[in-house]
Amino acid sequence: MGQITVEKNVGGIEGLCVITPAVHGDSRGYFMETYNQKDMEEAGLHMDFVQDNQSSSTKGVLRGLHFQKQFPQGKLVRAIRGSVFDVAVDLRKDSETYGKWYGIELTEENKKQFYIPEGFAHGYLVLSDHAEFCYKCTDFYHPGDDGGLAWNDPEIGIEWPQLTGTYPGNGACAGYTLTDGTPLNLNERDQNWPVLKDAFQF
């Protein structure tokens, strides 16, 4: 297992992993393996990826918090340009950390990857002027299977970096800005997801 190091159960949440690849650099640039099945399996991570996705976003864009209802996806995520604050929220009803979140800054410089297994909500906030975000998925996208949670649910209490504003009582982003004045930017759908206690009633 020479090409990656894996920090398991980050934030005390079982299954969440931060993966740091070995980067081989010189005056010309660098090379790294962004995924190696053998190294993953030697680290105890057994995932079968079936789909790769990539998105581009400007500063202040917040995407999430998203999950899949009937066809949950595990995701291996990274930023290949810029910087994002990436968040996972445990939605596994039998988990001791149900409702708990963990966040990590992923950047093109640190090259860290974040593995989020099935059963989590996921989202990220763009901190740089522009970011390109890539992720591998363990299941295909199924139209109509989308679910979501309010990004600013006080019960979850995510501490989004560089974000200032007053909680308006729902997922709306009006009045929120980054510390440099950049407005928070969510699409209409992400402003209207329910809070955790309304989304799941066990």
Rank of each mutant, 00 (worst) to 15 (best):
residue 190 D to N: 03
residue 65 L to F: 14
residue 122 H to D: 00
residue 101 W to L: 07
residue 59 K to E: 10
residue 140 F to V: 11
residue 70 Q to K: 14
residue 41 E to P: 07
residue 111 K to G: 03
residue 41 E to F: 11
residue 48 D to A: 09
residue 71 F to L: 06
residue 50 V to L: 05
residue 84 V to E: 00
residue 141 Y to H: 13
residue 142 H to I: 15
residue 184 L to H: 02
residue 8 K to W: 12
residue 9 N to L: 08
residue 108 E to W: 02
residue 22 A to V: 08
residue 159 E to V: 11
residue 47 M to K: 09
residue 136 K to L: 14
residue 94 D to I: 02
residue 57 S to W: 03
residue 88 A to G: 03
residue 18 V to C: 11
residue 125 L to Q: 06
residue 114 F to G: 00
residue 6 V to C: 09
residue 81 R to F: 07
residue 111 K to N: 10
residue 72 P to T: 08
residue 68 Q to F: 07
residue 96 E to M: 06
residue 7 E to K: 11
residue 108 E to H: 07
residue 104 I to S: 01
residue 117 P to E: 13
residue 158 I to N: 04
residue 33 E to N: 10
residue 191 Q to R: 09
residue 170 N to F: 04
residue 66 H to D: 02
residue 65 L to H: 07
residue 143 P to C: 08
residue 36 N to F: 04
residue 153 D to P: 00
residue 149 L to P: 00
residue 160 W to Y: 10
residue 192 N to C: 08
residue 78 R to I: 05
residue 149 L to W: 09
residue 19 I to M: 07
residue 42 E to Y: 11
residue 16 L to V: 02
residue 46 H to F: 13
residue 61 V to S: 01
residue 64 G to R: 03
residue 185 N to M: 13
residue 197 K to H: 12
residue 137 C to W: 02
residue 133 F to L: 12
residue 2 G to W: 05
residue 83 S to P: 00
residue 170 N to A: 13
residue 44 G to P: 08
residue 158 I to T: 07
residue 59 K to A: 06
residue 26 D to W: 08
residue 150 A to Q: 12
residue 157 G to H: 08
residue 97 T to W: 08
residue 160 W to I: 11
residue 154 P to S: 15
residue 105 E to V: 12
residue 186 L to Y: 04
residue 18 V to G: 00
residue 104 I to V: 15
residue 122 H to Y: 07
residue 179 T to N: 11
residue 31 F to V: 09
residue 127 L to Q: 03
residue 85 F to A: 06
residue 47 M to D: 00
residue 8 K to Y: 09
residue 64 G to C: 00
residue 19 I to P: 01
residue 166 T to K: 13
residue 31 F to C: 08
residue 160 W to T: 15
residue 12 G to T: 09
residue 140 F to W: 10
residue 148 G to R: 07
residue 19 I to Y: 06
residue 135 Y to C: 11
residue 115 Y to F: 12
residue 102 Y to A: 07
residue 172 A to F: 02
residue 139 D to Q: 14
residue 27 S to G: 13
residue 195 V to Q: 15
residue 108 E to M: 06
residue 121 A to C: 01
residue 119 G to Y: 07
residue 125 L to E: 03
residue 87 V to L: 03
residue 51 Q to H: 07
residue 151 W to D: 00
residue 179 T to D: 13
residue 45 L to Q: 02
residue 129 D to Q: 10
residue 112 K to M: 11
residue 138 T to R: 12
residue 147 G to I: 10
residue 73 Q to Y: 06
residue 20 T to V: 13
residue 101 W to V: 08
residue 22 A to K: 13
residue 4 I to E: 00
residue 106 L to S: 04
residue 58 T to F: 11
residue 126 V to I: 12
residue 28 R to C: 08
residue 25 G to N: 09
residue 41 E to R: 14
